[in-house]
Amino acid sequence: MTDPAPPTDSAPSPAATTIARTVQHSLEAERRDLPTQAELERRTRELRYREAVDQRWLRLGVGAIVFLLSAGWLAADIVLTLAAGWGELGGRPFKLDSTVIVAFLTTSTATVIGLFLVFLRWLYPQVTPPS
């Protein structure tokens, strides 16, 4: 037995015409939605502005954190120095070897200065001019 031949009517089915119209409509909509050069430039300026504002807020926040961390660290240096000089801390006797005090003050000062340098180089990057 052979399979019967498919129907020969050339009229497309209603589903096929609906799909074809939908595809055609979508293609036309995409063509209409292509942005112009002026629109692309406006969007680029808007994105650059948003990036600059976001970067400003980020740098402001990080700057505040670096400042508070450095201020706390230097306050600890002052408290340690005063406690070592007076010989008590919080009403209790306090005694540290002078080499420990010098090492702590030296490393903490170097750390605070380094922290500020890293932050300032990030805040104000050196921009090399294009060649």
Rank of each mutant, 00 (worst) to 15 (best):
S13K: 10
R21K: 06
G114L: 07
T107K: 04
P129A: 13
E41H: 11
I101T: 05
A38M: 11
A76P: 00
R50T: 07
L89S: 04
E51G: 01
R56T: 12
L60R: 14
L40P: 00
I19Y: 09
L68K: 01
G91C: 03
E28V: 08
L80A: 06
A5Q: 11
Q126I: 11
I101L: 15
Q24G: 06
W86P: 00
L60N: 12
V127S: 08
E51Q: 14
S98Q: 10
A71D: 03
L40E: 06
L115T: 05
V112S: 03
D54V: 01
S13P: 04
A20V: 07
T81P: 00
D77N: 15
I101F: 02
D9S: 11
T22N: 09
A75M: 12
T17F: 03
A75K: 06
F116K: 06
R32M: 02
L40D: 03
W57T: 03
R43V: 07
L74A: 13
D9V: 09
A110C: 07
A64R: 10
I101D: 01
S70M: 07
Q126M: 10
F104E: 00
V62Y: 14
A83S: 11
R59P: 00
D3R: 15
L27I: 13
G114T: 05
H25A: 14
T128F: 07
Q24M: 09
Q24V: 02
F94T: 00
I65E: 01
L27P: 00
Q55M: 12
A64T: 11
V53D: 02
W86G: 06
F119W: 10
I78N: 03
W57S: 04
T8E: 09
A76N: 02
I65F: 03
T111F: 13
P130Q: 10
T8L: 12
L82H: 04
W86K: 09
V23E: 07
I78D: 06
P12F: 02
R31K: 12
V66K: 02
T36E: 08
Q24K: 15
S10Q: 13
P130I: 05
T109G: 08
D54C: 04
V100P: 00
T111C: 07
Q126D: 14
Q126S: 11
A29R: 13
L27E: 12
A20P: 00
V66D: 02
T99P: 00
L40Q: 07
S10G: 10
L69A: 14
I65T: 00
Q24Y: 12
R59L: 12
A76L: 09
Q55H: 08
I113Y: 05
I78L: 15
F67V: 09
T81V: 04
T22L: 10
T106F: 13
T8A: 11
V79K: 03
I19Q: 12
R56P: 00
D9P: 02
R45I: 00
I113G: 02
A83Q: 02
R31Y: 09
I19R: 09
L47R: 14
T109V: 03
P130T: 06
Q55S: 11
F116Y: 13
A83E: 01
H25W: 04
W57E: 15
R48I: 05
T99A: 14
T36C: 07
E88C: 01
T44L: 12
A15C: 05
V62N: 10
I113S: 01
L69W: 08
I78M: 09
L105E: 04
L60D: 13
R21A: 11
V53C: 02
G72I: 01
I78S: 08
V23R: 08
E51V: 01
R56C: 10
T111I: 05
E41I: 09
V66G: 01
L60F: 08
